[in-house]
Deep mutational scan, measured.
Amino acid sequence: RSLKHLCRLKIRKCMGRLHLRCPVFMSFLPLPNRLKAYVLY
Rank of each mutant, 00 (worst) to 15 (best):
L6F: 09
Y41V: 15
V24F: 15
C22D: 00
K10T: 11
F28H: 13
R34P: 02
G16P: 08
P32R: 03
A37R: 10
R12W: 06
L31P: 03
K36T: 03
L31V: 08
H19L: 11
K36M: 03
L31R: 04
L9Q: 13
N33S: 12
P23K: 15
R21V: 10
P23F: 11
L9D: 12
N33R: 11
C7M: 14
L9G: 08
V39D: 00
K13T: 07
N33Q: 12
N33Y: 02
L35W: 11
L18E: 01
P32L: 15
R34Q: 03
S27M: 00
P32A: 11
L29N: 03
R21S: 07
R8H: 04
K13S: 09
L29I: 09
K36H: 01
L18G: 00
R8G: 10
R17G: 14
R1W: 11
N33E: 13
R34W: 10
L31N: 09
V24Q: 14
Y41C: 12
K36R: 05
R21H: 05
K36E: 01
R1G: 09
L3A: 00
R1C: 07
M26H: 12
C14V: 15
L31K: 02
Y38P: 01
K36G: 02
Y38M: 03
K10L: 15
P30M: 14
R12E: 10
V24C: 14
L9T: 12
C14S: 07
L6S: 13
L20V: 06
L20F: 09
F28P: 04
L18R: 00
L18I: 14
I11C: 00
A37T: 09
A37K: 11
K36S: 01
C14K: 07
R8Y: 14
N33W: 02
L40K: 02
P23T: 14
V24S: 14
R17K: 11
L3H: 00
M26T: 10
L20M: 08
K36N: 00
F28Y: 10
S27G: 08
N33K: 06
M15D: 00
C7E: 04
L35Q: 00
Y41R: 15
R17C: 13
K4N: 04
